[in-house]
Write a protein that binds this DNA or RNA. Structure first.
Lengths: 208, 208
DNA sequence: GTGCGTTCATGTACAGCGTACACATACAGT
DNA sequence: ACTGTATGTGTACGCTGTACATGAACGCAC
């Protein structure tokens, strides 16, 4: 499982085949079927391995801080394993909620418990959960988009490959090349979180 | 291209192979290489075909309304073509910004133009752009997650497959089954957009 | 010890994949 | 009529996931 992740990290998701993995483990390809029923099971295993590393503490005293912490931890994980991000985000698109491996559900459960303790009612907790993870996944997805086309170039326009774009149709993108290069993902995530937390606070009973 | 999308719609992304598509078109598999260099090009074509259907008008008079409209249009498209969503979200993870097909860049350019006309400076426009699309992609990603495991079941807990979960470890998820069933994606998207627009308004020069 | 069921690994085989290459056909412009 | 250029076909290669049959190593009852 951990070898599978390493393989993905250095060669990308599509380079992970049963034969390549078996070779890396000095086993035959078929031996892998003793530990996973499918290739899919194997990918789920990788996802679980990653998610184990981002534990949401349902008993955290300050829930806003805990959400910020977990969000940044998740982002960090994505930056460490960019090749695994498609897995992380897309595995659950194909698997119904109740049939997912438990490791993929633990963050959800912990969030819901936290929301509960923070005072949200059922409907608000579900909405908050989807807001939070939607936001998080969306941010990570966008931050990791391959932006740089030619890393060795010094000029921003050339580095991003934006010089290829027709002048007439894409004036803004071309003129914003350097603003795009200066993008700060962590700050951006903070902005999004702040907006979310404000909107969540509005759902709390007025007590405070 | 349109046939490729139809194939994806009814059979899923991974069912789209050159041979299957060629068969659907009554051509040989190799004939497809006259119109696309790669299978990747073909997938890009499908993405472009979809994105053509969600045009952001950079000259819209009320920019907030335009953003809301485009967001909901994109969501609608995703609901119409759920099988194509992985493509829509993941294609750009592997292709540097400047090398993407123009159809994938047009929404970005239009957003940046709109932000410019709304009064945002360069850095704020880029940040807003990533906020907007990150939020949108994240929401769609999360809304489309397969939640229902057994559509024919009447009881929420069984329908979502949540009865499988260990009682002790997942109390909240089990008790929230019906709240999850009542999820309203459009309303959720509106909530997220509202939070974003509030935070964007704060970036505008104080004039109004 | 002997036989047994269970676990784990292997080797072979098959259908399907993307695509490189060589070849055929049809049509446009000279 | 000759010649590109665009389009389609057929064959072939190396790769994929995995079904199936086989075999080795073990704990355990007798």
């Amino acid at each position: 499982m951990v070898t599978a992740l390493e393989l993905i990290d250095v060669e990308g998701v599509e380079a992970l085949s049963l034969r390549r993995l078996a070779q890396a483990l000095d086993r035959s390809a078929m031996a892998l079927y003793r530990h996973a029923e499918n290739k899919g099971d194997l990918l789920d295993g990788v996802v679980e391995l990653l998610l184990e590393q981002v534990v949401l503490d349902a008993d955290a005293p300050a829930w806003q801080d805990e959400l910020r912490r977990v969000a940044h931890r998740f982002r960090g994980l994505a930056l460490e394993h960019p090749n695994a991000v498609p897995l992380l985000l897309a595995r659950s698109l194909s698997t119904p909620l109740g049939l997912r491996p438990l490791g993929m559900l633990r963050p959800l459960e912990a969030f819901l418990q936290l929301a509960n303790r923070a005072g949200l009612d059922d409907a608000a907790a579900v909405a908050a959960c989807r807001s939070f993870f939607g936001l998080l996944h969306g941010h990570v997805l966008d931050e990791l988009q391959g932006v740089v086309a030619y890393p060795e170039e010094r000029d921003d326009l050339l580095r991003l490959g934006l010089h290829r774009l027709p002048l007439g149709e894409f004036p803004r993108m071309r003129s914003l090349a350097s603003a795009m290069s200066a993008y700060d993902g962590a700050a951006q995530l903070d902005r999004l979180l702040e907006a979310l937390l404000v909107s969540l606070a509005a759902d709390l009973p007025p007590s405070g």
